[in-house]
Design a protein around this nucleic acid. Structure first.
Ligand code: FES
Ligand code: FES
Lengths: 138, 138
DNA sequence: AGCATTCCTGACTAATTTAGTCAAGTATGA
DNA sequence: TCATACTTGACTAAATTAGTCAGGAATGCT
């Protein structure tokens, strides 16, 4: 049950973006250096975040990335889902081929894992980028 | 952010054990069949669960495994930790070589992930095997 | 005693996922 | 025109997961 670098990096980068960008777009290399993340990897992540509409890009000289919306309105749960790091506590939902669906609909532990997933989602959905920036965390 | 089979299988098996064992020990193959889990894999898992003191074994004919303690006193969080599926939302804690510890102690998102981890642990710590058996889940 | 049953252990492996790198191209402003 | 910076896709090394397999050891039943 671990969080991968993809999700962590994405959130770190967006927090950095929200924190240091003053209206102007920031270059990937700048963010990568400041957060000590691999720049080429971050470029990949930013590409998908852009496709998902969380950030906007400006090309050419003085270009870079900026948040597509206000930091207050971007929730952590959104970022993780956009980057492809979803909360998967159950294994039965989608395909059902690898799923643990028994004869009686769901396995004995389904409700447990579903509850855990809901708990996590609730937490991450209640926190915005701005909250992290200003350290408003419980 | 996904739960591996190791953790899920361990909990499923212990729930089965708590649910179907009436004082008598149950064989691994029986549990594996009922929950449709790979038996040889489950044997491995049960070995480590025994070493951690969560279950007890009886060898020979009519042997099998039984809970070492009352189902009411075994928390899900214990099982996951025992089986080696810990909650790892941060990456800085232990070794610090792969950690994302920046110059100023902790990275910008540390508190966020720590909060998530605490949330998860709290949830799983508040639920016992007996709770799952009797479907007392929120 | 002998035999079936069941736990017990360690080594080994195939497949998947993660965590990236790298190279080449495109757009932009100075 | 040139340096800057985004954009894309292909490729890969390493780690982790999810098991299998073979053999051994204890126990109770007949
Ligand atoms: S987790 Fe949904 S059926 Fe097992
Ligand atoms: S998660 Fe602890 S310092 Fe980044």
């Amino acid at each position: 049950m671990k969080l991968g670098t993809k999700g962590r990096y994405a959130v770190m980068a967006l927090v950095d973006l929200a924190y240091y960008s003053k209206g102007k777009p920031l270059a990937v290399t700048e963010i990568a250096q400041r957060q000590s993340l691999p720049a080429s990897y971050l470029e990949q992540l930013f590409a998908t975040l852009r496709h998902k509409g969380l950030i906007a890009s400006t090309r050419g000289h003085q270009g870079g990335y900026s948040l597509a919306r206000e930091a207050e309105t971007i929730r952590i749960s959104e970022i993780l889902e956009a980057i492809g790091e979803p909360i998967e506590t159950t294994r039965c939902s989608k395909t059902s081929d690898t799923g643990c669906v028994g004869t009686k609909g769901t396995c004995l532990t389904h409700a447990l894992w579903a509850g855990l997933g809901q708990q996590m989602h609730q937490y991450l959905n209640g926190i915005s980028l701005a909250d992290v920036c200003e350290r408003r965390l419980t």
